[in-house]
Design a protein around this nucleic acid. Structure first.
Length: 496
RNA sequence: GGGUCGUUAGCUCAGCUGGUAGAGCAGCGGACUUUUAAUCCGUUGGUCGCAAGUUCAAAUCUUGCACGACCCA
């Protein structure tokens, strides 16, 4: 059975008719030519010639190509609207410009066809810059009809599954991904400006590490061993700092085998960066600087709107876990926040997970997650994280049980996480052991013991600060997108 | 995992207390040389998400399943 026959089962009349048209084109010559050279993008033409007087007399020759999005036939003359990578441009195709044979051919073209138009510029009586066609060519016959021209594509699922249709039909969507590119570029150039070196470390790890999360597992046939898609690049980047690359960053994917939501995609993009002879205060300054810099580039300022509410990026507040709880939940007393039994009961009352961790810091942190995290709208660094939940962070010299760690929250969610790195190899070994015990006790998100990483630390990791910034979430913030799926080109979906 | 809503033509959507499945766009045929969601006349196109049940009769009522959106965990 040929592919053609097997495909035809789900085809409707429109597709069948277009296949007939393609067949006729094949019989006449080359159906998919690739020798057309264009002279201009649509946007260039608008920028140069919109509203220009006496344009027609100048006889400016242009050649454009793009997808035909609109078509208006009026007997002996027609208009078509082409969309290229830069925008749209209108063409006027008439018997007295291209001849009646060509014009008749144009009438058989369909919306969605990719076409080339050559001619001269003029401005219509309604003031629109238009190409008066002297020759036209069909470059690609489109076999499937586009979504309805006015309402476009609105079905969320189809936008995600068939992103190409979303991009064809929705200028807003194109803008979001153009902005994503600008944001990543802005972050990159900021880092380079700070003398950081961009690196690429493995995405397939023999031992998953650098975060507490469930990994995806795969298998290497030649080595006959399991490999894990990385949950974070952290441990490799710090090995590079051991190696003397004193300022490194990586922007790329990590993978976590967890639930999906408007804020979680199984693969997501993070930037992690590490700087020798820096601590978590410096990392907070970097984080603030990066976000403010790209916000200015992407939105023009530091006062933005997210989902209808203002966000002030000009000031990043710093609060400890306990200070944050008290600020956003003034009903809690100091006494309560230092009472283990009360904390446990309150966490359960708020619907939190049953608490295993017994340390006061861990309990306060759990309460924070339940009652404060989603209330942090303007950028807020939360500092002083309990050691139990921070197995790679340097312990505070002055506060027992506390690490030199921060997380950045805004619009009710976490955007970044950083700390002064733990560079004491013996402490690190002990913390890995503790994680292994937690794993054996049934916590499948707990970390593995990474002997090579400890060995690297034994050679000496300079005092170092490190941080990870969620790029998808940053793009969501700066493009006012409600779902991570709106800023990831091909979000993970169930199979159709 | 729980709740709410949704799934009808290629696309956007109507379809009431159950009674022969509709519109606009797209397509096809026709008119039209400055239109722009072109317009006007005619017309093709459907396993009503899937499965079971109730009923003389189900797009419509019931149950289950699938997929999606939103909210919660």
């Amino acid at each position: 059975m040929s592919e053609h026959t097997s495909l035809s089962q789900d085809e409707n009349q429109i597709v069948a008719e277009r296949r007939q048209k393609l067949k006729a084109i094949r019989e006449k010559g080359i159906a998919f030519p690739n020798d057309f050279k264009r002279s201009h993008f649509a946007r260039e033409l608008h920028a140069k010639y919109d509203g220009k007087e006496g344009l027609e007399a100048e006889q400016i020759e242009v050649a454009v190509a793009g997808r035909m999005m609109l078509k208006r036939v009026m007997g002996k003359a027609s208009f078509a609207t082409l969309q290229d990578g830069s925008g749209r441009i209108q063409a006027y195709i008439a018997n007295d410009g291209v001849g009646s044979d060509s014009h008749d051919e144009f009438k058989r073209w369909d919306m969605g066809d990719i076409v080339a138009i050559s001619g001269t510029l003029f401005i219509t009586r309604t003031g629109e810059l238009t190409i008066k066609a002297s020759s036209i060519r069909l470059l690609v016959k489109s076999l499937r009809p586009l979504p309805e021209k006015f309402h476009g594509l609105t079905d969320q699922e189809q936008k995600y599954r068939q992103r190409y249709l979303d991009l064809i039909m929705n200028e807003y969507s194109r803008d979001v991904f153009a902005k994503r590119s600008q944001i990543v570029q802005g972050v990159r150039s900021y880092m380079v400006g700070e003398q950081y070196l961009e690196v690429e470390t493995p995405m397939m790890h023999p031992i998953p590490g650098g975060a507490t999360a469930k990994p995806f597992v795969t298998h290497h046939n030649a080595l006959d061993m399991p490999l894990y898609l990385r949950i974070a690049p952290e441990l490799y980047l710090k090995r590079l700092v051991v190696g003397g690359l004193e300022r490194v960053f990586e922007i790329n994917r990590s993978f976590r085998n967890e639930g999906m939501s408007t804020r979680h995609n199984p693969e997501f993009t993070m930037m992690e960066f590490y700087e020798a002879y820096a601590d978590y205060h410096r990392m907070m300054e970097m984080t603030e600087g990066i976000i403010q810099s790209v916000a200015r580039q992407a939105t023009g300022g530091l006062h933005i709107q997210y989902q209808g509410k203002p966000v002030d990026l000009s000031r990043f507040e710093r609060l400890t876990v306990v200070e944050a709880i008290k600020k956003y939940n003034p009903e809690y007393s100091d006494e309560q926040l230092h009472d283990r039994a009360w904390l446990k009961a309150e966490i359960v009352r708020l619907g939190g997970k049953p608490v295993v961790i017994d340390g006061i810091g861990g309990l306060q942190f759990s309460l924070f997650e339940e009652c404060t995290e989603t209330k942090l709208w303007n950028p807020t660094f939360i500092v002083d994280y309990p050691i139990e939940v921070s197995p790679l962070a340097r312990a505070s010299d002055s506060k027992p049980g506390i690490t030199e760690r921060f997380e950045l929250f805004m619009v009710g969610r976490e955007l970044a996480n950083g700390y002064s790195e733990l560079n004491d190899p013996e402490d690190q070994a002990a913390r890995f052991m503790q994680q292994v015990q937690q794993k054996e006790a049934g916590d499948d998100e707990a970390m593995h013991y990474d002997a090579d990483y400890v060995r690297a630390l034994e050679f000496g990791l300079p005092p170092t600060g490190g941080c990870g910034i969620g790029i998808d979430r940053l793009v969501m913030l700066l493009t006012d997108s409600a779902s991570i799926r709106d800023v990831v080109l091909f979000p993970q979906m169930r199979p159709e």
